[in-house]
């Protein structure tokens, strides 16, 4: 296995981990399977494309062709994607959490509402923007490093570093902030958290906005490698869901481990000559089925058992 393959695998893994962690945290704290994560992904990609396109002349006029201009461009892309993701999270909160969180069948109904949101948003994007792919401005610039005879593209390196940074920040927020403490309390025992005065409604909004922002970051990072399109969110959503489940829903470390496993598996299957890219999904799902047969609650999923 050469270094290029490892870099490629880590690149995939970091994007998947961003999606999977969002889904996992959301499930264990708010009790919602967010099927609208793919729509959030696609919407943030489009928002980044739209805002960067609109501000391009202004930035070019102010900074010219300096380093400052590309830094500004990069921050505009990332910021708009993150803000759009957080906004989508707030919309999901208003539609799929707030009206029904104290009503019967909450978990199934929220799943259905987010699924309907996903279908509706993807089709609306398709209808409004058309099926054409859009390229985002390169955040990390073009070019590559030579390291131990392998070429590492800037965008791959930037994705890995950026995603890891965002994940560390998220985990630190969960670990050290007051809000994070409340979220963790809800993850451990929702009822106990309610008894000790933690409001479910007040905690769900930041959690949903945070996971939306994570999807936004993932969108901005993945769009460095592929294009923005209305259906771009489908594969990250399916991958994120499968990895969150494989890691054991609610276990953040399990999700990261599963993301790395699946990233490497996909990278390796992609280069094996007689399998190739067409069998990537096939191999992923076969692997997942195998794991689930031996560990029915996923890799890190002993949580539910200990909870009872």
């Amino acid at each position: 296995m050469d270094l290029g393959l490892i870099i490629y695998a880590l690149n995939l893994a970091s994007i998947y981990a961003l999606m999977a962690i969002g889904i996992s945290i959301l499930w264990s704290s708010v009790g919602m399977i967010n099927m609208a994560h793919g729509a959030t992904f696609a919407t943030s990609g489009y928002a980044a494309w739209f805002v960067s396109g609109a501000l391009k002349p202004a930035i070019a006029a102010t900074f010219g062709k300096t380093v400052m201009a590309s830094v500004m461009m990069a921050s505009v892309v990332m910021l708009s994607a993150v803000l759009a993701g957080a906004f989508c999270g707030a919309v999901i909160y208003a539609l799929a959490f707030l009206p029904i969180h104290d009503k019967p069948n909450y978990s199934v109904r929220s799943l259905i509402i987010t699924l309907a949101l996903n279908i509706g948003v993807v089709q609306s994007l398709l209808w409004y923007f058309g099926p054409r792919n859009r390229g985002l401005p390169k955040v990390f610039g073009f070019g590559r490093w030579e390291l131990l005879d392998t070429k590492i593209r800037y965008d791959q390196a930037g994705t890995i570093v950026g995603a890891s940074l965002v994940m560390i920040l998220t985990l630190a927020w969960l670990r050290y902030s007051r809000r994070g403490l409340e979220v963790r309390a809800m993850m451990q025992n929702a009822e106990g958290a309610a008894y000790s005065g933690i409001s479910r409604q007040a905690t769900a909004l930041p959690v949903l906005m945070l996971t939306g922002a994570l999807a936004g970051v993932a969108a901005a990072l993945l769009s460095q490698t592929i294009f923005v399109s209305p259906t771009a969110g489908v594969i990250p959503l399916v991958k994120g869901l499968t990895i969150a489940l494989l890691g054991g829903l609610g276990s953040v470390s399990g999700a990261v481990a599963a993301a790395i496993l699946i990233g490497f598996l996909e990278a390796i299957v992609g280069v094996i000559p007689f399998l190739g890219q067409r069998y990537v999904m096939f191999a992923t799902f076969s692997f997942i089925i195998l794991v689930l047969i031996f560990r029915p609650r996923g890799i890190g999923g002993l949580l539910d058992n200990t909870r009872e």
Partner: peptide, 22 residues
């Protein structure tokens, strides 16, 4: 009406699930 019909189905699904229990 093209992709609008899928949007329509999604909207019906959304409204029904928000307001109706089953």
């Amino acid at each position: 009406i093209g992709p609008l019909r899928i949007i329509l189905v999604a909207a019906i699904m959304l409204v029904v699930t928000i307001f109706a229990r089953e």
